[in-house]
Design a protein around this nucleic acid. Structure first.
Lengths: 328, 328
DNA sequence: TTGTATGCGTTATCAA
DNA sequence: TTGATAACGCATACAA
């Protein structure tokens, strides 16, 4: 059996209440006894029983993190940061993989979230209505990479990211740019399309439609891009950009000489290829850290909506278009 | 406040004990009452309080998974599978990132593992002695991708994997092969070197030393490989292989025409590059699933040591060496 | 400042 | 088959 608080109390010659206070509310105990209890606790290897503590305080010391796909480098980067920050704040992290399934997502939140001190919902695929339902459950919920249902959230500036990417391409001389979008209904994809629409530059933007946010999705989009006659391709994320790169190479299209490619996220895979990927860097770790901080910080009434900046990282996949831009 | 068992009992007109049994030990309750209680519970949206249950049963419904680096695709793949399998078995997963630090690793196990039903230690970097200490803690521990301290474990056949890779290269005609090893002290690295040593083929094996199991480690190893005059390079994992690939390309060495490269793991990144990587495929998902099953299945006394098979996947980075093999 | 007593929600024990 | 009751380990209201 594990060492219990009563064991510590007995060994220190005090009551259980005093032992409890010495550890959880040091100010309420005389210095000598406090030190005595803490020393004894350390010597005995005492570890408070989380279940017992939760039962009375209502706090479990657990955060719940739900992501669409743990294997996606975007989410594993966020998960890593979340875990680290939560630990620093004395919380363990229960992670759940929703397998890109909105239904499972909702169920996981209901199931796991109920016994957690808070839920971090990362890039949820569920509808705003379902989001609202989740929110009504009582537990604090924080949205990562999505806004909606009046829930507190932390996101990145998607519009600006796309703007930066397009500006860069425009400056290089590109005038026909294709955008290979992410999953239909994706919140961040919609934001990026906003950024695309709001531009006031003399260029043509081709919409390549919606694609799975993975390598294979990019492969498919590449053919559309070639057919469109665009000199540059923007993708929803880096995984797709790598798919585009791969497919273009297979088809004998040189990057960046014939076509430029720009990704999004600067996920850890962006530098795994040659030339390495020009991409819009998202502060993944900061996203995770901020999410934990926001979730753990009580906010009175109005939900905080944090927007983190993004930054274009120019690497090897962008260059001027093959022919000089036409003068108008 | 959440719906409690007493609420259900009251609404159903039975005692709390009966309500409890109706849900957790259905056989002990008369069919009519059982159904009544279950219906009422469903209607009220009752969810058992894990903390209260844990307090009395000693089981938390949590598994603890400790990995060296969540961002490493090897571990995120295992984590994904572990999570899925654990969920199917009614367990939540608390994941901890040890940041490749043996000290932190041990602390995490002690801290998080104490309140879990079992601990999955994935590729632990700690010494066998520390492993033994962890094991003594009482909680069931299962080693993934490592053996030691008489703990139950699930690993892959590293020796055979290396053997397959070398056979493949030998068959292609390679006679000078370099091995770029992983972290010094790595258990699986040692097993692979065993496989290397046990070969009975007419070829020279060059040891390129120990490297960080990441892209950058491979970059460094590539230069050593070139200097060694080897016609083929084996790496500790796929991340390193990609680093080798990148560096070779930068230096104008063609793959596979001038040098062949073989990775290990078949992590999701292996097909992100062109040509895609020839590698020893490790059943990552199966590793995770098996780990959960083994941890949850009580084994009387002697610890199970499961070894999973691996399989060479030949893709684009291997070909015959530039010059025909010398005849001896 | 300290100790006593109580209760958190559930399961286990025992008697009916 | 059921119900009353105790117990899990801890934090807190209250009394001292």
């Amino acid at each position: 059996m594990a060492v219990t608080l009563r064991d510590v109390a007995r060994a220190a010659g005090v009551s259980a209440a005093t032992a409890s206070r010495a550890l959880s509310a040091p100010d309420l105990v005389s210095p000598e006894r406090r030190e005595l209890v803490r020393r004894v606790a350390r010597e005995l290897g005492y570890r408070p029983n989380r279940a017992a503590r939760e039962l009375i305080t209502g706090r479990s010391g657990h955060l719940c993190l739900v992501v669409p796909d743990l294997e996606n480098p975007f989410f594993s980067a966020v998960a890593k940061a979340v875990q680290a920050r939560a630990r620093a704040a004395g919380h363990a992290v229960v992670v759940a993989d929703a397998e890109e399934d909105p239904r499972l997502e909702a169920e996981l939140v209901a199931q796991l979230g109920a016994q957690a001190d808070g839920v971090l919902l990362c890039s949820p695929r569920m509808s705003s209505d379902d989001l609202a339902a989740v929110a009504a459950d009582g537990r604090p919920v924080l949205l990562v990479n999505r806004e909606g249902a009046d829930l507190p959230s932390v996101v990145v500036d998607n519009r600006d990211g796309l703007r930066q990417a397009v500006r860069h391409l425009h400056a290089l001389g590109h005038r026909r740019i294709a955008y290979a979008g992410g999953p239909a209904g994706s919140w961040s994809d919609a934001r990026r399309r906003d950024g695309l629409a709001a531009l006031d530059l003399d260029l043509e933007v081709l919409d390549l439609g919606a694609h799975a946010p993975v390598f294979a999705g990019g492969v498919g989009a590449a053919d559309l891009a070639v057919a469109s006659g665009a000199t540059a391709v923007l993708t929803y994320n880096d995984l797709m950009a790598l798919g585009v790169l791969d497919r273009l190479r297979t088809r004998g299209v040189r990057v960046p000489q014939d076509v430029s490619v720009v990704g999004f996220d600067d996920a850890p895979v962006a530098t795994l290829v040659t030339p390495s990927l020009t991409t819009v860097a998202v502060p993944l770790a900061r996203l995770g850290r901020t999410a934990v901080d926001l979730l753990l910080t009580p906010h009175d009434d109005d939900a905080p909506h944090t927007v983190l900046p993004v930054e274009l990282v120019v690497r090897g996949t962008t260059a001027p278009p093959p022919r000089p831009p036409e003068t108008r």
